[in-house]
């Protein structure tokens, strides 16, 4: 253990880990579940469950403490929203402009479906107008392609 201690003394200034010298708290799966819905404030694109930045560790600790106090998941989320705003939530609340996001699958499918329906209706209308057999058409298309 001696080389470990010597090197750690040398490095100790650089380490931001456990400044108090005490071990981090024990955490249950529920803590990580809640933390994964919250954004790590200093990180770029990581949740408080993924990141090991100091703030995320403190956030996990506070979540564990609040769970022990018997607070609900929703109350814990609110606690962080009060401090950071809704920016801290990785799933924006379902209201206002955010509906645009939540309905994105329906909007996307709807728009594409509408386009498709119009396309098919037109193709069918043309078929009726031309009133040509499919065989003839294919032959014609083939000839066009050859040119």
């Amino acid at each position: 253990m001696r080389p470990l201690l010597a090197l750690l003394l040398f490095l100790s200034l650089a380490l931001a880990q456990t400044p108090t010298g005490e071990p981090p708290p024990d955490l249950s799966p529920e803590v990580f579940k809640i933390a994964s819905q919250l954004r790590c404030p200093v990180c770029q694109g990581e949740s408080a469950a993924e990141s090991n930045a100091g703030v995320s560790q403190e956030m996990r600790r506070q979540i564990a403490e609040m769970l022990k106090e018997g607070k609900s998941e929703e109350a814990i989320r609110d606690y962080f929203v009060q401090r950071y705003g809704e920016w801290i939530l990785y799933a924006p609340p379902r209201r206002g402009v955010n509906w645009l996001l939540w309905l994105a699958p329906a909007i996307g499918l709807g728009l594409l479906g509408l386009g498709l329906w119009r396309y098919l209706a037109e193709a069918r209308r043309r078929e009726a107008e031309l009133a040509l057999g499919e065989e003839e058409l294919r032959a014609l298309e083939h000839r066009l392609e050859e040119e």
Partner: peptide, 27 residues
């Protein structure tokens, strides 16, 4: 479409309303 919108949504919201939102794994 959903991935594009989800990725750009924070930028769109901030540009139009000035608010900051996050879109991540839970969404």
């Amino acid at each position: 479409f959903v991935v594009v919108l989800g990725t750009l949504f924070p930028l769109i919201v901030e540009a139009t309303t000035g608010d900051k939102v996050s879109v991540g794994a839970p969404f």
